[in-house]
Design a protein around this nucleic acid. Structure first.
Lengths: 340, 340
DNA sequence: AGATGCAATGAGATCGATCTCATTTATTAG
DNA sequence: CTAATAAATGAGATCGATCTCATTGCATCT
């Protein structure tokens, strides 16, 4: 690969002048500039970013770590981040952690060695994350996405999970649901899931209803009906459930329907995330829409501001309740209505 | 950030020795080595990859360009690539092209400037791609994913689209379908979609059936029922359709059901890709499963081999027919069966 | 003891671009 | 036409790690 020096030689100038022809053309006499450009053309010169990065002590690279790209929520956010980053001349190094703390640690260390200009992370537990603990001592700007700000000390981009979840619950209550449950992955492992459960509990209590204990599925994004069926039987059978994420909701709907339940007739199902696909299903998924693309864009712009040295305390982004066919009026209420 | 030189000074050795302590510990006396390590510890030394990259003329970075991360097919492949790459000490720079030739060009140029060790690309049309044309002149290893090998001259990882599509068609025929159509995005714009249509036509002709003209939707991954309804009416109404990708199939199912059609009762719907979500829907999506994760892994391993200088002519990966509830026995045949 | 050999270390160049500062060349004023 | 000023260019250092080659130190052998 031709380097600047060979271009300079061919053009009969010094490296400095050749460099200037590109970075500061006004400082170079037009005739000289042309000779340099011609030489560059002939030699198929392509500037070496690695050398520029070393010299300038800036890589124009952002390190991104998400739990998994198999969940469209992260993929859709990443898509927007990539567009925003490139529009600003930045590239993304993308990694996935699967929420494994050791992988999180390795990944971040690797990215710091790569001297990324900043980091955008989504961790399992922002408040108790070893990797964030370590990052607190570093000067590399770091931004969280989806993780609630909490007391991690890092700025965070995302919605107000508690409020969003409360909104979802209130919506179901407004429709007449009273026996509402919440379905989550195992152990309520992420800080977000916990906040969403809190919001649910809050809205239930607020309406004078009893919040049910969490229904835990064996996997984070895939429903197993067995874990839920107990809650669907007897006089206290649930009439609606809120899932802590859309994938869980979608697979739960599938399982329910396959088992002969009607959604929303027998059980209303609500999701959380707002992945694009939910809109196109039948029944379409009623869910809380997190503005994934906006979150991604905002994350990039906020991080770039931090890289420029600005202090950032981003506000939560607005969520929206996306109505959908997976939620209906509870059977009990329907019969009441029909007797009017 | 502490550099090797400061570590060396603190340890009372030269840069060369300090460097050796890390890269070639056996060449350094244990006592000296310890002093270097201690110094590194104290100064929180973190090796600078940029400098290493410049010096070694290798970045251990792979440039990845996919059309979009909003389609799980690419996200799932990327997930696997990331894991495989990191396991081999490589990082991924991830970009999205939206199939725009100008963005493709910019992206690849940018990655070449970054001196990625290799490229993994998915383009719209491998045979007529300007960016591939240019890459043919470069020495940076380049690998295609999902694009049929064709005569682009680049190795390619993916399934045999024509055969896979023919298999899908034959499966429907086996079930008794005869009026089978194919549904695609606008213009049949990708080389894959075209091959899939070819395979469909081939299997139809092979069975003595007439291949219908392609039904074009206005968008690539979202169905509009209006475009399809004409084909669902009259004596020649289709009993089954194959969509060129899963997102299209899923949204089509949704639209059909919303419009009062029964799937598969009134129309069997088949997809192509095998995204994970399809399994969990109801009706579950019958589709051709491309081994997305395997494709991603193989792409990384093949590219690494190419980087090592090996010649690679990867064979197509096996596809599989994933049966699903979205496909059933045609109504005509059912009535025949019931009269037996 | 002197020579031979190996182990351990250091000095300096290198990767490619860019910045500072000095120097040369061109321009304008007097 | 020369002095003063501005414009254009070059020499060399720098970013951080690593490699080659030379040198020092120590031990073994005769």
């Amino acid at each position: 690969m031709a380097d600047l020096l060979s271009v300079a030689k061919l053009a009969g100038v010094s490296r400095a002048t050749a460099a200037r022809a590109f970075s500061n053309p006004d400082l170079v006499r037009p005739a000289t500039r042309e000779r340099v450009f011609n030489a560059a053309q002939q030699l198929a010169f392509r500037p070496n970013k690695v050398a520029q990065q070393l010299r300038s002590q800036a890589t124009q690279m952002i390190g991104v770590m998400v739990p998994s790209l198999d969940n469209p929520v992260f993929a859709e956010q990443l898509q927007a981040m990539e567009v925003a980053a490139r529009a600003s001349g930045y590239s993304l190094i993308v990694t996935t952690s699967e929420y494994s703390p050791s992988r999180e640690g390795d990944i971040v260390e690797e990215m710091l060695r790569q001297r990324v200009d900043g980091l955008v992370l989504t961790v399992a537990e922002a408040d108790s994350s070893a990797v964030l603990e370590k990052l607190r001592l570093e000067k590399t700007p770091c931004l969280l996405v989806y993780n609630p700000p909490g007391n991690s000390g890092f700025p965070s981009i995302g919605v107000d999970n508690r409020a969003a979840s409360a909104d979802a619950t209130r919506y179901l209550i407004t429709l007449g649901h009273q026996r509402i449950g919440m379905v989550a992955g195992p152990l309520l492992q992420s800080d977000r899931a916990r906040q969403r459960f809190d919001g649910y509990c809050h809205a239930m209590r607020e309406a004078g209803l009893i919040a049910r204990p969490l229904v835990e599925m064996t996997r984070h994004t895939q429903a197993d009906l067995k874990s839920l069926t107990p809650a669907l039987q007897g006089p206290e059978a649930l009439s609606a459930v809120i899932c802590t994420n859309d994938l869980l909701a979608i697979s739960l709907m599938g399982e329910l329907q396959r088992a002969g339940f009607n959604v929303p007739g027998d059980l209303s199902v609500m999701g959380f995330d707002g992945i694009a696909l939910g809109k196109h299903l039948y029944p379409s998924l009623c869910t809380i829409e997190q503005p994934r693309a906006d979150i991604g864009r905002t994350a990039v712009h906020t991080l770039l501001a931090m890289i420029r040295g600005e202090k950032c305390t981003p506000a939560p982004l607005p969520h929206a309740l996306r109505k959908g066919e997976s939620v209906g009026i509870p059977a009990s209420r329907k019969s009441t209505l029909s007797t009017l």
